[in-house]
Write a protein that binds this DNA or RNA. Sequence first.
DNA 1: GCGACAG
DNA 2: ATCTTGTCGC
Length: 233
Amino acid sequence: MRLLHPHTTPATEAEARAVQERLRPHTLLDGSGPAPGAPGTVVVGVDVAYDDARDTVAAAAVALDAATLAEVGHATAVDRVAFPYVPGLLAFRELPAVLAALGRLTTTPDLVVCDGYGLAHPRRFGLASHLGVLTGLPAIGVAKNPFTFRHPPPGPRRGDWAPLLDGDEEVGRALRTRDGVKPVFVSPGHRTTLADACAHTLALTRGYRLPETTRLADRLCRQALRDASPSDG
DNA sequence: GCGACAG
DNA sequence: ATCTTGTCGC
């Protein structure tokens, strides 16, 4: 896969924040990505797992048919951890391995679903935005926790949502993907609108809180990590 | 200064 | 993210 912008690991946190500020203007929040659930489109979920003791990270990319949710391909990559976890700078920790896994995919993604945020970020440039801008691919962020942002409680039923607010700006939505279960936190990354990001999330969710894309990617990257660093040696 | 803080 | 057994409920 060829990147529109190269990825390099910053030496400092200040440099990492500067990279985000420089790339942020390239973000597109339009409807140029695929329509939610459109037949024939390929939706790719990405996730990573860590082995702190071995300073190792494993990433997985799982491709599904958007209409049937049938798997159409997958790939993994194992790498050295390149950056520490710092709130707001997650992308620098996850991107190298994720980009490597995406590069090994033989199918072309029409949309990438990330674990974390896109627009809902202190500098409006979370992992999903960053990945989208570097690759040029439409991307959304689906996070399990609300980070810094406030939100009213969404209704109790699947599909109910409430705005994720930074002051009076709606940067994402707390979206109920299962009746009575804690919502997920959705924000657009690149080439999608907030409404479409939520519609994609619902279209990819079947019977569990998290989208099938992230569930499968989570399972696969954990397996890849085990294969790379067995419990003993 | 204190708390909060995606994964 | 990760460390970890059982347990309540459909």
